[in-house]
Every structure is written in structure tokens, then in C-alpha cells.
């Protein structure tokens, strides 16, 4: 199995001098292609910090990591932005749909950013909308959707461009059980279909149990991996 994401002794500290907090201590692990990996740990253990580094939102303070062989630690803000645009899909805890965009536009947005032709966008988005049972909602604004529908739109937006890596920070935390499980089900299906690697932060046992593998964070240090 080809390796996708590889971290070697990645650390992250916030603040300076006396006020310095080290949120991550020399984290090393690899995420294989198509793998569905859970990052487990209590609140404040550094899950979000790790996902933000892997998702190229924040740079690490030390250490090296690479995606599919491309070194990422030294990328500047602009290059990280471009990488996020092309290679990474995000699923957010509060879905973070753009309120002024319709369901269709929210899902189409990553393709538009990548300069895909309008015709192709329409084809891809409508196919996914049908696939997710959202086609009748295509022209609706996020505020007109239920929580479960919003989650599905959020998942669709993350996967529409078929990214190499999907980052999901506590994706089920704002949903009831039924919807959370439906969402996870969908993520697994798309993981199999599209072959993207998933990195999911969660402390929901239901979510963790359905992942291929889990790593455990405790006070910014890597614990057992199973």
C-alpha cells in the first residue's frame, strides 16, 4: 500500500518563552493510501493542532512531514493555501457551509477554485447530489437545511474534488447519534469509492470503532496505536 501522509517528529508550540505551550511533542506516524484513521484523545490533547498541521492550515514548529513524497514542513502561507485547494478536503465540526451559497454552490465551490469548467462542475456536482439524496435541495440555502443535510453537504464539499487527504475534526460532535452515524457511513462509502485517506479526530467510540486504525493522543504525545 502506497504511503500518503508521513510525519516524522512533528512538534508544535504556541506562544513565546514563559508562556510557551507545547501542544504536540515529536509526533511520528504514517497514514496509508485510502486509510481511515482515527485520532483519539481527550479535549485539549492536541487533536485539532495535529489535524491543522496535517491539513496545512498551520505550519509545525519542528519536524518533517510529507504528502505523497512532497515535503510540506517548509511551505509558505501561499503554497499551503494552494495545497489545501488542490489536495485536501475538510469536514468541519459545525459544517461551516457558506450561508450566502446554495447547496449546489457550496459543493461546487472547491471545483470552481480549481478552475474546473462549468459543464464538468455541473456534471460532477449533480451526480454527487443524487448520490447523497440532496438533489431536491440543490437550490436551497444552508439555513433551510436540517442538521443531517448540512452534514451531508459538508461531506460532499470535502470530497467533490476527489482529494488525496480528507481532514475531519470531530465531524459528528454537533449531531445526534442517528445523523452522526449516517454521516460516518457516508464518509466510509466515499473513502472506499474515491480512495482518499481520512484523518478523523474524535472521542466518539462509535466513530473510532468504525475506523481502520486509531492513534491516541495524550497531552500532545502519541500513545498506543491499534
Amino acid at each position: 500500500m502506497a504511503i500518503r501522509l508521513e510525519l516524522a517528529a512533528v512538534s508544535k508550540s504556541y506562544g513565546h518563552d514563559k508562556n510557551q505551550i507545547t501542544a504536540l511533542h515529536e509526533i511520528s506516524f504514517t497514514l496509508a493510501e485510502g486509510e481511515f484513521l482515527a485520532v483519539q484523545g481527550p479535549s485539549g490533547s492536541g487533536k485539532s493542532t495535529l489535524l491543522n498541521i496535517c491539513g496545512l492550515i498551520d505550519p509545525p514548529s519542528a519536524g518533517h512531514y510529507s504528502l505523497n513524497g512532497t515535503a510540506l514542513s517548509q511551505l509558505n502561507t501561499k503554497a499551503r493555501c494552494g495545497y489545501r485547494r488542490r489536495e485536501i478536503g475538510f469536514i468541519f465540526q459545525r459544517h461551516q457551509l457558506i450561508p450566502a451559497m446554495t447547496v449546489y454552490e457550496n459543493i461546487a465551490y472547491p471545483l470552481l477554485l480549481n478552475g474546473i469548467r462549468k459543464k464538468q462542475i455541473k456534471l460532477d456536482v449533480e451526480q454527487l447530489l443524487v448520490r447523497m439524496g440532496l438533489i431536491h435541495r440543490r437550490a436551497h440555502l444552508p439555513k433551510q437545511l436540517s442538521g443531517g443535510e448540512r452534514q451531508r453537504v459538508g461531506i460532499a464539499r470535502a470530497l467533490i474534488k476527489r482529494p488525496q487527504l480528507v481532514i475531519a475534526d470531530e465531524p459528528s460532535a454537533s449531531l445526534d447519534h442517528q445523523h452522526a452515524h449516517a454521516g460516518l457511513q457516508l464518509m466510509r462509502e466515499l473513502n472506499r469509492e474515491y480512495g482518499a485517506s481520512f484523518l478523523i479526530a474524535s472521542h466518539d467510540p462509535f466513530v473510532i470503532d468504525r475506523c481502520d486504525r486509531k492513534i491516541e493522543l495524550l497531552d500532545g504525545r502519541l500513545g498506543a496505536s491499534t
Binding site: 501561499k78 493555501c81 494552494g82 489545501r84
Partner: peptide
Amino acid sequence: REEIATLSALGTN
């Protein structure tokens, strides 16, 4: 702010 951060996370310049 959240919307701007989201757009930015999605790779908007």
C-alpha cells in the same frame, strides 16, 4: 469571521 476562515481553509486566496 468563520465564513472567511472556512473559505481560506478551502484554499481561497
